[in-house]
Structures are given as C-alpha cells and as structure tokens.
C-alpha cells in the first residue's frame, strides 16, 4: 500500500470510528477490534489491547491517545496526526454546529431529558461491553474463573477510589503471574 493510501486509510477508518461510536473508548472496544484487527489487519489483537492501556500514558484524552498511537503504528507521525484528527473531527463538528445553531438554554432546559437518556444508554452499553469482553475470552474453566475474579477486583478497586492507571498496571502484573498461556493441542 502506498504512503498516501495508507494515510488516507488511517484517516478514513478513525473518522468512521469517531462518527459511529458513543460512550468513549471503552464502549467501542468490540468495534475497534473489528476495524483495526479483523478488517484492516493493522494490529494483532493483543497489541490493540495493550494500546487501550498504553493510551492512558499519553498526555491527552484516552480515546484520542489511542487514535494517535494506532495511527503512529500504521503511518508514523502523519498517521498519528490523521488518526487523532479523524477521531475527534465528527464530535468537534457536531459541537460547533450546536454552538452555532442551538442556544445553551435549550439543551440545559427542555432538552435535558434527552442528554440524560443518552447518558443512561451509554452506562448500559459500557456494562454490556464489559460482560462481552469477559465472555469472549478463551481458555479452561479455571483460567476463566481467575480472569473473571481479576476483572471484578479491578472494577472494585476503581470504585473504591484507586486511580485507573494503578488498577490497570497492578491488574496486568497479577494477571501475568496467575494466568499463563495455555498449551495448544500440538504442544502437548
């Protein structure tokens, strides 16, 4: 693929992601795996998953950081810029349209139930997505039980006030100690 087409692909893919995902990066993990791993083949699954967490190390909003990081992997500095730009462009244009066309008194007043209904849907989508993530994991019964306990522990730690990055890092360390790659049939 030529550099131009590659960069255009990065911009187009993230523009589509930015225009069709609601609720932030965590609500879009399934969709991102489909687009960035299955459809384009830009990243292996485990690298994308690591990128979800590594994006928190970038001094930017997390979802934007992910766009910049994946864009960089695919197309260098320009790819990073185009990935992040494509991701944020739809939301920015919509906010701008709102700022130009709609008065603030409307959204904070009569249309407040609409904002609340969307927020409620986003919370449900996030919880549903968390369950799907656990259900989609392969492995023995014991592997899945330990993994599920790890998910619950991370969730509980954040609810109790532990910073997200700390919970993620500790979770990965504990996970690496408790969950080893399971041998395939041919390895036995």
């Amino acid at each position: 693929m030529t550099g131009f087409r590659r960069h255009l692909g990065v911009f187009g893919t993230f523009l589509k992601v930015g225009a069709t995902t609601f609720g932030g990066m965590w609500a879009a993990t399934d969709k991102l795996e489909r687009d960035l791993v299955d459809r384009t083949g830009w990243l292996p699954k485990e690298e994308l998953r690591a990128s979800f967490v590594l994006a928190t190390l970038i001094p930017a909003p997390r979802f934007l950081g992910l766009g910049g990081l994946v864009g960089f992997r695919v197309g260098g500095w320009l790819g990073s810029f185009l990935g992040a730009l494509g991701l944020i462009l739809p939301a920015s244009l919509l906010v701008l349209a709102g700022a130009v066309l709609v008065g603030p008194e409307l959204l904070a007043g009569p249309l407040e139930p609409m904002t609340r209904a969307v927020s409620i849907a986003i919370v449900g989508i996030l919880f549903g997505n968390a369950y799907r993530q656990v259900r989609g994991e392969k492995g023995s019964r014991r592997h899945r039980q330990i993994g599920t306990a790890l998910s619950v522990a991370i969730f509980a730690s954040v609810v109790l006030g532990v910073p997200l990055v700390v919970s993620a890092v500790v979770g990965f360390v504990v996970g690496a100690l408790l969950l080893r790659p399971e041998p395939k049939e041919g390895d036995r």
Binding site: W26, A27, T29, E46, R49, A50, F52, V53, L126, N129, A130, Y131, Q133, V134, G136, E137, G139, H143, G147, T148, L150, S151, V152, A153, I154, F155, V158, L164, S167, A168, G171, F172, V174, G175, A176, L178, L179, R180, P181, E182
Partner: peptide, 11 residues
C-alpha cells in the same frame, strides 16, 4: 492471557 479480563474490569 490476562489482557481481556483487565480490559473488562476497566470498561
């Protein structure tokens, strides 16, 4: 092996 479970907790 643990990344999916960690991500689930973060979501």
């Amino acid at each position: 092996p643990s990344s999916g479970f960690v991500i689930a907790g973060l979501i």
